[in-house]
Write a protein that binds this DNA or RNA. Structure first.
Length: 450
RNA sequence: GUGGGCGUAGCUCAGUUGGUCAGAGCGCUUGUCUGUGGAACAAGAGGUCAAGGGUUCAAGUCCCUUCUCCCACCCCA
């Protein structure tokens, strides 16, 4: 019989127990942070109607990466969700009667993109989104930025930069440089390449795109602005932009928001190393309308961004008629998990490859039920317990099994101990062994484990 | 989607200019060992050399195609 190849689809992975223990730690930490800011959990189907996803302003490039999902007799045109933002907009419109505005929700779930896989880039991956629906003011933007900062700090990251920019400012730059609306997307595309090709490269590409030389010069001079440093330096940079873009109303609006966020970051105690103004950060998704954010880890700096987000005030309107101002962020858990590993940021409690804390040994078939009962008592006391299943194996094999699996405690209650109403507890990492009363085994074992 | 690199036992890899080249270490199974692990010794299982096609008397080794993974674009978490 021909063997069926055992493999996952391209760009999609299985997670082993050791992987899941670490992933769960990251998910739990992020969830705790989200909830501490008052975000409520929701979930949505992994499939959406195709019309929900398409034309949402995510961009034509992105739409080509959407997975279709159809069953034989299906009458609906379905697709796997590409992000959690478009589903949220649909969700808000659909459940308006059941939610309270402003609506703060978080959503931790997988999304699918048919890209070519690379390190830190998969076709199925989890996103952790936190969004605030129904608040127009920049306080909401400031708060989602603070969520990013808090979550990364809580996970143990120190060297990262939350880059901020503003779509209104970018629009204003287009006006300032005398660029038509049709040319704006290609302008953004070029500007976004700055960190790869440098400003000179950008200038070259702009010149090739038949922009007037004067426009190119004016633009590049603005983009040259240094948005790093402490709050005072960043405020000074914004002041400089204000003068330069005097008379461009939309740009001034964007600058107002950036100024607010700069003050906010300072008030939140974020250092100048963790925040930066970056006029060349654009973000590909087309639905952003105001402040935009993107975070990169700066120490190992080869894994792309770990966070993206911003304000998208028009998206909900697609599903609701009248729109609702919305802002939010998305953390890329896959890259965070990879980076946590590289930087060794996991606490000792999640370093193991098993959830089992204690192994109850077994001596023979006659006493096996007694072993199962002993395990039950230990579980009652809150321990995670596995019972050894093969009574023919000697004690040495059973201890060896516990050791190789990383189980810290072996529980021994053979005929000798049972006759005296006792249980023997052996701790593997230091070989320490104690004898305790059978009746008190739960508490004793928990204490012995530390 | 475009260009490039890689692919030999579960894992890490060795395989000379095509001709005992199907191997090693680790891991796994069993035994020494029906009450105390990380060891030792012995025996054993496991591979259509990623898949398919071609050149040749002969291919893991050369050529073509496909696929995974990786890298650079594109784009993005």
């Amino acid at each position: 019989m021909a063997r069926v190849p055992a493999r996952t689809p391209k760009g999609m992975r299985d997670y082993l127990p050791a992987d899941m223990i670490k992933r769960r730690y990251v998910f739990d930490t992020v969830r705790d942070v989200f909830e501490s800011f008052g975000f409520e959990p929701i979930d949505t189907p992994v499939l959406e109607l195709r019309e929900t996803l398409f034309g949402s302003g995510m961009g034509e490039d992105a739409e080509k990466l959407v997975y279709y999902a159809q069953h034989a007799g299906g009458k609906e045109e379905l697709a796997l969700r590409y992000d959690l933002t478009v589903p949220l907009s649909r969700f808000v419109a659909e459940h308006e009667n059941d939610i309270k505005l402003p609506f703060r929700r978080y959503h931790i779930a997988p999304v699918w993109r048919g890209e070519r896989p690379q390190k830190g880039r998969y076709r199925e991956f989890y996103q952790c989104d936190a969004d605030i629906v129904g608040v127009r003011g920049p306080a909401a933007d400031a708060e989602v930025m603070q969520v990013v900062y808090t979550a990364l700090r809580r996970l143990g990251f120190a060297d990262f930069t939350i880059k901020m920019n503003n779509r209104k400012l970018l629009t204003g730059l287009g006006i300032y440089a005398g660029i038509s609306d049709e040319q704006l997307p290609s302008l953004y595309r070029i500007i976004d390449k700055t960190d790869k090709i440098g400003l000179d490269g950008v200038a070259g590409m702009l010149a090739e795109s038949n922009l007037p030389a004067e426009s190119v010069t004016r633009l590049v001079n603005i983009l040259r602005l240094d948005g790093t440093g402490d709050a005072q330096q960043r405020l000074a940079a914004i002041g400089h932009l204000r003068e330069e873009l005097d008379g461009v109303a939309i740009a001034q609006e964007g600058l107002d928001e950036l100024e607010y966020l700069t003050y906010a970051a300072d008030a939140f105690g974020m250092s100048g190393d963790n925040v930066a103004l970056d006029l060349t950060m654009v973000r590909g998704l087309g639905y952003y309308t105001g402040p935009i954010f993107e975070t990169v880890i700066t120490k190992p700096d080869n894994l792309g961004s770990v966070q993206g987000g911003g304000r998208y005030d028009e998206l909900v309107g697609r599903f609701r008629g009248q729109s609702l101002p919305t802002t939010g962020i998305s953390l890329g858990i896959e890259r965070l998990v990879d980076l946590m590993e590289m930087l060794d940021l996991y606490p000792a409690s999640v370093s193991g490859t098993t959830v089992v804390q204690a192994l109850v040994t077994v001596f023979d078939e006659d006493s096996q039920l007694g072993s199962l009962r002993l395990a039950a008592d230990l579980r009652e006391a809150g321990l995670r317990v596995e019972t050894y299943m093969d009574p023919r194996k000697n004690l040495g094999k059973q201890i060896g099994y516990a050791d190789s699996k990383g189980i810290g405690l072996v529980v021994i209650a053979g005929p000798d101990e049972q006759a005296q109403g006792l249980v023997r507890l052996k701790r593997l990492h230091d070989g320490e062994e104690i004898v305790v009363q059978r009746a008190a085994v739960g508490a004793e074992a928990a204490a012995f484990l530390g």
